[in-house]
């Protein structure tokens, strides 16, 4: 009978109409992303030995590592910048770091108004927001 298929389709639609809603209530409820999500990066200043391996591993030259030699001729980190507008969020930098000084983080709200603002001074950031603290706490809610 012509129309049978249409009715069947309508049946499915009605079934879904009464199914529980699945809309994410984003700005009100922040989703908690799985721990492997690479939304941004955080630097641990104590662990970083300023070797620059991460900067070399990066495909898009996102990372700039600045360092100076101290009195024992040891490298000391003096600056660490990520130009996130070019970042592919591939995680190769994190994988390559020999001391695990750079870590991934799930704080995904990175939107900026200007290109300039996408630059991240990780060296300074590391003081106020070391890995695994701060920003993580305000994440309530549940992932759908």
């Amino acid at each position: 009978m012509f129309g049978e298929g249409l009715l069947k389709g309508l049946g499915v639609t009605i079934k879904h109409f009464f199914a529980p809603k699945i809309t994410e209530q984003y700005p009100e409820v922040k989703p908690k992303l799985p721990p492997l999500v690479k939304s941004r990066f955080r630097l641990n200043r104590e662990k970083c030995i300023a070797c620059g391996i991460c900067a070399n591993a990066c495909p898009n030259k996102v990372i700039t590592v600045n360092s100076e030699k101290d009195e024992n001729n040891k490298k000391r980190l003096t600056g660490y910048e990520m130009n996130l507008q070019y970042c592919l969020f591939c995680g190769l930098c994190v994988e390559s770091c020999p001391t695990k000084a750079i870590e991934i983080d799930q704080d995904f709200e990175l939107a900026a108004y200007t290109r300039e603002n996408t630059k991240m001074d990780m060296y300074k950031e590391a003081l106020t927001n070391p890995p695994g603290t701060a920003a993580k706490e305000d994440k309530g809610g549940k992932d759908a």
Binding site: L33, L36, V37, K38, L88, F89, C90, G91, I104, D143
Partner: peptide, 15 residues
């Protein structure tokens, strides 16, 4: 994509 997010940390550009 949620599953991908769990295993590799990205949804589309998985790398």
């Amino acid at each position: 994509l949620d599953l991908f997010e769990m295993i590799c940390g990205s949804r589309l550009t998985t790398s």
